[in-house]
Nucleic acid binder design. Structure first.
Lengths: 327, 327
DNA sequence: TTGAAAGCGCTAACAA
DNA sequence: TTGTTAGCGCTTTCAA
């Protein structure tokens, strides 16, 4: 069923049908009714595809995610969809599964699909990727990493960690341990560690080597990191972990050793995962509000879509510390 | 940059360029090189859109979800993408936010976008929706609900709940409570309740009215449901909740009352949420393996795509009970 | 082995 | 107020 078929059946030109569908131009009421009638009868649905070819607008936004089943990703998607759907945009979703090479592949793929814009949730960023983004020439917003000359939304990982450490210090802690992740992850690994180190330094606190451990992203590695801390010397009085799961691993270790939380060991995580509210004691954590980040990213994209030249916007997404029982 | 432009620069016809891109038909090596060269230089990316218009194939699969940031959804997406991405399909994602009317809207929308197939994660299913699906005429797979004449993947909610109750009975429990949700949700609300009732009946156990409570999907309502049970009479010795969060709410109530779990009150949930492993005591739950459901759904779709007429497949997805500390 | 011509389903001048 | 014409970027006969 095509527009031509409808036109024939309604005994009008296809232009008229088009006008009826899009509510553009003048159409006599009688004809309009006739056309609408036929459309109704046939269940005709116009091909967006053909339309796009003509109008150069697909109303599709490409989104590139490293993974789908993480709270970060799904919350972000939530925010993005909240903004985009009401404006009539659909989301073409691609998932890299953490393979950096795929980010470039998907950038090409999405461009080939003539998407109106792209949102990339980046975990790392290297030269080839930078290159590719530069020559993209369609509305683009990067989330999670900063890049000169590109619109973006980043979480203020440095400052959030700094503030968290400061909170511990204000509460009288002088021995503060840190469980991080690989610094290749610029946001979670590098910047959060930097915030930690800076806060200690600014407050004249000692930085003990064995109080700084590294895990990957699961609870088990948080457990081992804490174990290592204990094995290599004294445990500090407080530990900050860069993710809630790592923090929960640390908790598990502490509980296993019969240490009371927060009295003998205070623990905080980051990310405001759902688990953090159900664990006992409830985990103090940092809420980065990924939903808002998604909303902001989509908002910036929309601005670009409407022709505004918003180059190099970088919105630092705000965060708040959720103080709960674990400290 | 279009195929015409490339053709002009390489001094060949656009047909030849097309052949080079698609590796179809005969092309002299020299010409091929010349074309490839130009493509490389210009960074040309063919328009999938124009291609689709001609070939009637978009390589896009539409997915309709009730929500994105739930473990069910994201695990399902995971499974779907795992299968579809390697075959060159992209996912066009639409989210209804639980508004039933939108399911039909999106069905139209996706059809208008000429997607090659559609996967719908359904929570309910009424007559208008059934109608719409019937006249869809493109590969379609329904997940989560059964519908005659339509390929689908359902979780065996009835049997899983039945088995869970049986497990309690085998462990000596005779008083088993139930926290459900609205029966409008056929799978989670209706079928699971049915499994519970049938298991009690089959084993000649008493069904006490106040032992059957209803919550929504959050922990707080699980708490209140349990509270109601206690207020309206004696608490049973065991409680089954149809979601982990409800179960966690029940746990919170029990702990607040100083009841020991599982000795004074045994509790099980369903869904194998991540939280269930971190809560204390660890929650016994049913793992429905949504990832597998996604894999199967995508697999069935792929079969339909390759022309196989797989009408009315309904894969009962397997499940397993994760027995942990809470019972 | 290559190219010319037609056409996928739609919109947008333009003319009537 | 309506229709004719051209063309979006591509693939696919068909003929050369």
């Amino acid at each position: 069923m095509t527009i031509n078929e409808i036109a024939k059946r309604a005994n009008v030109s296809r232009t008229t049908v088009s006008r009826v569908i899009n509510g553009s131009g003048y159409v006599r009421d009688e004809l309009k009714k006739r056309v609408l009638q036929v459309i109704e009868e046939t269940g005709y649905i116009p091909s967006e595809n053909a339309k796009s070819l003509r109008t150069k607008k697909t109303n599709i936004i490409g989104v590139i995610l490293p993974k789908i089943s993480t709270e970060t990703s799904s919350r972000l998607m939530n925010g993005i969809d909240q903004v985009l759907a009401p404006k009539g945009y659909q989301i073409l979703l691609t998932i890299t599964n953490q393979e950096p090479a795929k980010e470039i592949d998907f950038l090409h793929l999405l461009k080939g699909r003539n998407v109106d814009g792209i949102i990339l949730l980046a975990t790392h960023i290297d030269e080839p990727l930078r290159e590719e983004i530069k020559k993209l020439k369609i509305p683009f917003v990067m989330v999670g990493q900063e890049m000169a000359g590109t619109a973006g939304v980043v979480l203020d990982d440095f400052q959030a960690t700094y503030d968290l450490v400061k909170l511990f210090i204000e509460r009288g802690h002088k021995e503060i341990g840190f469980i991080g992740v690989t610094e290749e992850d610029r946001a979670v690994g590098y910047l959060r560690k930097l915030g930690y180190l800076k806060a200690l330094k600014d407050n004249g606190l000692e930085i003990k080597h064995h109080w700084i451990q590294e895990g990957n992203f699961d609870a088990a590695s948080g457990f081992h990191a804490t174990e290592n801390m204990a094995d290599e010397g004294e445990l500090p009085s407080a530990i900050i972990a860069v993710t809630d799961r790592l923090a929960i691993g640390a908790m598990q270790y502490a509980k296993g050793q019969g240490l009371s939380i927060p009295n003998q060991l205070a623990i905080a995580g980051m990310g405001a995962s759902e688990i953090s509210t159900y664990i006992e004691p409830q985990l103090t954590t940092v809420d980065f509000s990924q939903v808002d980040a998604g909303v902001e990213a989509a908002g910036i994209l929309l601005e670009q879509l409407s022709g505004q030249k918003t180059d190099t916007v970088t919105v630092k997404n705000n965060y708040r510390i959720l103080v709960r029982e674990s400290i």
